[in-house]
């Protein structure tokens, strides 16, 4: 209601307070960037861009002390993309099931259960992954993979337990609800008139989904996947507890690795001097990475919201 508010002191004050509080959000975001840059200036000036591509990480003070973030960037990307590869087909399947196939009475409880998966704290996924899933993978899954697919570089080496595979599987479970609930909303935004048009032409349900619903929802679904990726990149506790925290760059999923978030959680509390700076810079990198991804995802999801169309028949 613009218009008749000017002149009233109380109104102006109120508006000012609200505006200040709202602006704090913007300020915080900026201050994060500034504060992290400040706290990592030592390694920023010592290594410059070389930090990002540096392959060695040795925090022991002395002549061999060296910091490079590449192993952690690598570990983050490998675990996240592996998790995506596992989670995306399943999440889209769930979204399609809930939005297109399930009868009403099954729809709500299923969506509810999947969203509860998102509510379970990260540290509990870590606990469960370590004590329950790890033995299962070591005893049943890993040997099978190395027997049948051991000729591939991805399944080479002796499975030890805390490795890329374990972390990725748990990560996949954790990002599943994010991707599937956003995808479900995206599918719901597809106008019903289009579904009806396809059905009236004699399409089966699946043909309708494939040729009309999915193309319409494509960019929104991409956004959902990127949101999931953003979560996977920043996920800390479960990964820290499961990935092994060894800065290495192997192709094999049976090798331990470390991610950007996990190395911070693992080393920051005991870090000194230059190591502090290096870990903070990794945090800065992670912040920048997730920032870019989130902006990208929001733009994609928003665009779907603006597409023409209606919610369909009541």
């Amino acid at each position: 209601m613009p218009g008749w508010r000017i002149g009233n002191l109380g109104d102006r004050l109120f508006r000012g307070i609200a505006a200040t509080f709202a602006t704090i959000i913007v300020v915080v975001l900026l201050v994060i960037a500034v504060a992290l840059t400040q706290a990592s200036r030592e390694t920023l000036s010592a290594y410059g861009f070389g930090f990002v591509v540096g392959q060695d990480w040795n925090p022991v003070e002395g002549a061999n002390e060296v910091y490079g973030a590449l192993p952690f960037v690598w570990g983050t990307l490998v675990t996240s993309f592996l998790a995506l590869a596992l989670a995306v087909p399943i999440s889209v399947g769930i979204a399609v099931f809930i939005a297109e196939l399930a009868p009403e009475w099954i729809r709500t409880p299923t969506g509810f259960v999947v969203e509860l998966l998102a509510a379970v704290p990260s540290v509990i996924y870590g606990l469960w992954g370590f004590f329950v899933l790890r033995p299962v993978l070591i005893e049943h899954v890993d040997p099978a993979l190395s027997r049948w697919l051991g000729f591939l570089p991805f399944f080479r080496g002796a499975p030890l337990g805390n490795d890329v595979l374990l972390a990725s599987v748990v990560l996949a479970i954790m990002i599943l609800p994010t991707i599937s609930s956003v995808s479900r909303e995206i599918l719901r935004a597809v106008p019903n008139t289009l579904r009806e048009a396809a059905l009236a032409l004699g399409a089966t349900k699946w043909e309708m989904i494939r040729s009309v619903v999915l193309p319409y929802a494509k960019s929104g679904l991409t956004g959902a996947v990127i949101l999931g990726l953003g979560r996977a990149l920043g996920e800390t506790m479960a990964v820290t507890m499961l990935v092994g925290n060894k800065p290495s760059m192997s192709l094999s999923v049976f090798e331990p690795a470390a991610t950007m978030a996990s190395i911070i959680a693992n080393q920051y509390p005991e870090a000194q001097g230059r190591q502090h700076s290096a870990l903070t810079e990794i945090g800065l990198l992670l912040f920048a990475l997730t920032l870019v991804l989130n902006i990208l995802a929001r733009l994609l999801v928003w665009r779907v919201g603006r597409l023409p169309g209606d919610a369909g028949r009541a």
């Binding site: 009806e196 396809a198 494509k218 597409l307 169309g309």
Partner: peptide
């Protein structure tokens, strides 16, 4: 249908 519904994609 009542509302024209060509496939926009």
């Amino acid at each position: 249908f009542q509302k024209p519904n060509p496939f926009p994609t």
